[in-house]
Simulated scan of single mutants.
Amino acid sequence: MDLSQGSSGFVGFAGRVEVLEGPTGRRRWPDDVKARIVLESFDSGASVNEVARRHRISPQQLTGWRRAARQGRLALPLEDDSPGFVPVVVEDADAPAAEPASGATAEQASVIEIEMADLVLRLPAQSPPERIAAVVAALRLSA
């Protein structure tokens, strides 16, 4: 069909047609799906653009999720699906309790210590397990 002279007097087309594939608009991503995509983007040789294109998200969105993971706001799963155990040191119950440092209360002195290379991170013992897991995941990424 000749577009220069249609039956309705249409004289050519000077616009642009864009075909959208896949879902459009706002989507809600579960944290476990975000974490899996972020973990995939951290693989050696992976490109943020390529991973984002494969999952049909924008590179900016993936970059935001990566930032959230680094800041401990998005917990990443363990890469090998095995539980992450670390050595635990338990002090003898009969040993005298250590004095809290510099006038701190016993509650303030109760901490969880995470040692990694030359870094020692101390978290309050009453920290939620999810937060501790997020911190450990973020530390693993930075190593």
Rank of each mutant, 00 (worst) to 15 (best):
P30M: 08
P30D: 12
P30K: 11
P30N: 05
D31V: 14
D32G: 06
D32S: 09
V33C: 06
V33N: 05
V33D: 11
V33G: 04
K34M: 08
K34A: 06
K34F: 02
A35H: 00
A35G: 03
R36L: 15
R36T: 15
R36P: 07
R36F: 05
R36W: 10
I37D: 09
I37H: 07
V38N: 04
V38H: 01
L39P: 11
E40W: 00
E40A: 13
E40M: 13
S41D: 10
F42T: 05
F42V: 07
F42W: 09
F42A: 04
F42Q: 05
F42M: 02
D43R: 15
D43C: 13
S44T: 14
S44P: 14
S44C: 11
S44Y: 15
S44D: 15
G45F: 04
G45P: 06
G45E: 08
G45Q: 12
A46I: 03
A46Y: 02
A46F: 00
A46P: 01
S47C: 14
S47P: 11
V48M: 10
N49Y: 07
N49V: 08
N49C: 02
N49S: 12
V51C: 05
V51L: 05
V51M: 07
V51E: 00
V51H: 01
A52V: 10
R53L: 04
R53F: 04
R54Y: 04
H55A: 05
H55P: 02
R56K: 11
R56C: 08
I57H: 06
I57Y: 04
I57P: 07
S58Q: 14
S58W: 09
S58M: 12
S58K: 12
P59Y: 06
P59L: 02
P59I: 00
Q60W: 11
Q60S: 15
Q60C: 06
Q61W: 00
Q61D: 01
Q61T: 07
L62W: 05
L62A: 08
T63V: 03
T63A: 08
T63S: 12
T63Y: 10
T63K: 10
G64V: 05
G64K: 01
R66L: 09
R66E: 09
R66P: 11
R66N: 08
R66M: 13
R66S: 07
R67K: 13
R67V: 13
R67Y: 11
R67W: 10
R67P: 06
R67E: 10
A68R: 02
A68H: 01
A68T: 00
A69D: 05
R70G: 08
R70L: 12
R70Y: 02
R70M: 04
Q71E: 15
Q71L: 14
Q71G: 08
